[in-house]
């Protein structure tokens, strides 16, 4: 009888510690959807490749279409992530924008925005081939950095992106494949894993 009370106390402590220090409203579904957008985007670019003129010129048709597709994939993924997090938080009757989600977003955004600016600078210097590895690398660092305030497994996904980014910088001519594999396939696999592990139960 007494030990049951103690066990309940321990469980309460554990759940409070986790709930108060981790942003757990990330949804596996948004990972799957973000991966799908990246796959579609990568597929479109792949299909268009035959008509592209190489080397790609700044502000050419090739340049603009790839940029628009990449930005679209990013914006859609971001919006999807936010919408599904709000939904999940509401389901759990928690606030989305609290101390921990702020810390999570901050620790995620600092490397990500740094990488984004770096990618823009690379483009301005016409170093197009380095853009996919740089985005993979910085996104991976963002994940590792932010995993402290969220699911610990997010760190593993981050490491995969870092490895992909490094590998891609060795073989820059395969940027499209590395980028699509990372942002597309890895997101879908990880999102599905998260969905099955955490979301489906609730």
């Amino acid at each position: 009888m007494e030990s049951e009370k103690y066990l309940a106390q321990l469980q309460e402590i554990q759940s409070m510690m986790q709930k108060s220090s981790k942003f757990l409203s990330l949804s596996g579904v948004s990972g799957i959807l973000a991966g799908t957008y990246a796959l579609i985007g990568g597929g479109i670019v792949y299909a268009m490749r035959d008509n592209f003129e190489f080397p790609v010129q700044f502000n050419s048709f090739e340049f603009l279409s790839v940029t628009i597709i990449a930005v679209l994939v990013m914006v859609l993924s971001f919006i999807t992530g936010v919408i599904f997090s709000i939904r999940k938080a509401k389901k759990k009757q928690e606030l989305v924008w609290n101390q921990i989600s702020k810390l999570f977003v901050m620790s995620f955004m600092v490397p990500l925005i740094t990488g984004g600016l770096f990618a823009i600078i690379l483009v301005s210097k016409r170093e197009f081939a380095l853009v996919p590895p740089v985005t993979l690398l910085f996104y991976g660092i963002s994940l590792v950095n932010a995993s402290r305030y969220s699911f610990e497994t997010l760190r593993n996904l981050g490491f995969i992106f870092i490895i992909l980014g490094l590998a891609n910088s060795l073989f820059v001519e395969y940027g499209l494949y590395f980028w699509t594999f990372g942002f597309g396939v890895c997101h879908i696999i990880y999102g599905a894993f998260m969905y099955l592990k955490y979301d489906k139960k609730q």
Binding site: M16, M17, K19, S20, S21, L95, N98, Q99
Partner: peptide, 19 residues
């Protein structure tokens, strides 16, 4: 106490929300 063990500082509203 559980919350303050794992967070450096927490404000009143956050405690209210969590508890």
């Amino acid at each position: 106490m559980s919350i303050l063990m794992v967070n450096d500082t927490v404000d009143f509203n956050r405690l209210k929300e969590l508890l």
